[in-house]
């Protein structure tokens, strides 16, 4: 479904701030695979995700989604394939627009937007039903501005928007990191349900090692711009935080690393 081949990305090239964020990352996701991504700050997790989403072009390598080479496509042209939820709850929704308008925008992801109605009566009914799944009472506030919602509500809504039209690939960039633990657990739970229901190919970055182990059927750890660990199947099921740390120390060759990873 997703095929990343040897991608490189350098920021601030030829300056003192030069940072090689991705050093030849290759990764293939099978159809319906749910992959969790962990790694310390600066390991390249978010850069990888943004490179896939097309936020910026990569220096080298290729990215293929569902057989289509998207390496040179701008962000908005990759949107037909990709549903995204960002770390910042403010990023995924338009605050000055209504809940139902946001959903209607998401329902047209990847379609040509012309002079047809921005939202139809039928859609409203459909959205009302969908919002009930979130169990946040948003179905009663469909014409409220999204700016009035809490961070958790906005993230849940963004998740619904990202999956409203079944995406070929779902990208979740630490989408629960900015939420309080209780809300985070709820949003993660909703994520799990939606991903399972639609069998979505998913790439989820998380800072929480436990979440990374519990969720998904494959786990990768990034270190210094590379994929350092790639575990799936039975091996993943048996993982514990301790064994994961051990594996990581072997890869990075240092004990300091686990502090960095745990604290980050």
């Amino acid at each position: 479904m997703l095929e990343i081949k040897n991608i490189w990305k350098t920021f601030n090239a030829n300056t003192v701030n030069e940072k090689v964020a991705l050093k030849g990352v290759s990764l293939t996701l099978n159809d319906g695979e749910f992959v969790t991504v962990i790694g310390g700050n600066g390991a390249g997790k978010s850069t990888l995700m943004n490179a896939v989403a097309g936020v910026y072009p990569v220096d080298r390598g290729s990215i293929t989604i569902n057989g289509a080479d998207v390496t040179d496509l701008p962000e908005h042209k990759r949107a037909p394939y990709i549903g995204r939820v960002f770390q910042d709850p403010m990023m995924g929704t338009a605050a000055s627009m209504q809940i139902e308008e946001n959903l209607a925008l998401a329902a047209r992801r990847g379609q040509t937007r012309g002079l047809k109605a921005g939202i139809t009566k039928m859609e409203r009914e459909e959205y009302r039903e969908l919002l009930k799944i979130l169990d946040l009472g948003l179905e009663e506030r469909m014409t409220s501005k999204v700016g009035l919602l809490s961070g958790g509500q906005r993230q849940a809504l963004t998740l619904l928007m990202a999956t409203l039209r079944k995406p070929k690939l779902l990208l979740l960039d630490e989408h629960t990191a900015a939420l309080d633990p209780k809300t985070a657990a709820k949003v993660l739970d909703t994520t799990e349900r939606i991903v399972q229901k639609d069998k979505l190919t998913t790439l989820m970055i998380t800072h929480n090692m436990k979440d990374a182990i519990v969720h998904g059927d494959r786990l990768i750890m990034m270190y210094d711009g590379r994929v350092a660990i790639d575990v799936s199947g039975q091996e993943k099921k048996k993982l514990t935080v301790e064994t994961l740390l051990e594996m990581f120390n072997k890869v990075s060759g240092s004990d300091e690393a686990d502090d960095k990873l745990l604290l980050s």
């Binding site: 962000e75 908005h76 960002f86 990023m91 000055s96 627009m97 925008l105 002079l115 921005g118």
Partner: peptide, 24 residues
């Protein structure tokens, strides 16, 4: 109130979100 008009409003409200929804 049309699709295109809504895309324009989304662009002004949150360009990141707009691009993620495939809006140029």
């Amino acid at each position: 109130g049309r699709e295109l008009g809504a895309a324009l409003r989304a662009t002004g409200s949150n360009p990141n979100m707009a691009r993620a929804q495939g809006i140029n």
